[in-house]
């Protein structure tokens, strides 16, 4: 959590706070990846490539509950909530609209925490394959995780057969978000 004190904060402080939030969050994705069965059996370069391509997407899934579509607010990791209007002043309008849209669609699926975690694993190993050395190993891992996710969801909801396809349709949404926004600048204060 990064202490940012509220409505009287400057845009600069909000931007710094936002940027600082990413560092611990990225480290947590690395730890999460190490816990995915089979991930550490991939070659190290492939692990690094998947993490570089997929981390933002995993974070987008993880933090989708921080976007309140009804109130049009975003809650940062320090618990501070900002209205969309304030964040637009940081030049993040298009990004936020796309994130709200994604969060609403994913939220409407009503996933349980274990389903969400397994979906995040699928997201990570489904990331862009540029630079991957052992494509077959990554594809096998992805297939296994997708099978596990399908099994988990359909066992729990045997009468609902549209949920899994709808969930998979979120993967291209995440790639679009990633491609549109990976070149956004973060600002870190030099003390």
């Amino acid at each position: 959590a990064w202490p940012v004190s509220g409505a009287e904060c400057t845009s600069q402080q909000i931007w710094e706070s936002f940027s600082q939030c990413f560092t611990p969050a990225v480290k947590e994705v690395v730890e999460f990846a190490k816990g995915i069965p089979g991930f550490q059996e991939l070659g190290q370069q492939d692990q690094v490539m998947l993490l570089k391509s997929g981390t933002f997407q995993v974070l987008m899934v993880r933090f989708c509950t921080l976007f309140n579509a009804e109130e049009r607010t975003v809650t940062f990791l320090n618990g501070q909530t900002y209205p969309l209007s304030t964040l637009r002043a940081l030049g993040m309008g298009t990004l936020l609209d796309a994130m709200f849209d994604f969060s609403e669609k994913l939220g409407s699926l009503g996933l349980e925490p274990d389903e969400m975690a397994l979906f995040m694993a699928v997201v990570l190993v489904s990331a862009d394959r540029s630079g991957i050395l052992d494509m077959q190993a990554v594809e096998q891992l992805q297939e296994g995780l997708i099978r596990a996710l399908r099994s988990l969801i359909t066992r729990r909801r045997p009468d609902e057969n549209t949920l899994f396809p709808k969930l998979l349709l979120r993967l291209p949404d995440l790639r679009t978000l990633n491609n549109m926004h990976s070149d956004k600048l973060l600002a870190f204060r030099i003390d």
Binding site: E16, V26, Q47, F56, H181, S182, D183, L185, A187, I190
Partner: peptide, 25 residues
């Protein structure tokens, strides 16, 4: 006046990941 360094989101993520793997070598 405060000074800042700027980094793209992608570069920031790459940097953290590279550091983490280097630390654990």
């Amino acid at each position: 006046p405060k000074t800042h360094r700027f980094m793209t989101l992608a570069d920031h993520i790459s940097h953290i990941i590279t550091q983490d793997f280097a630390r654990n070598q």
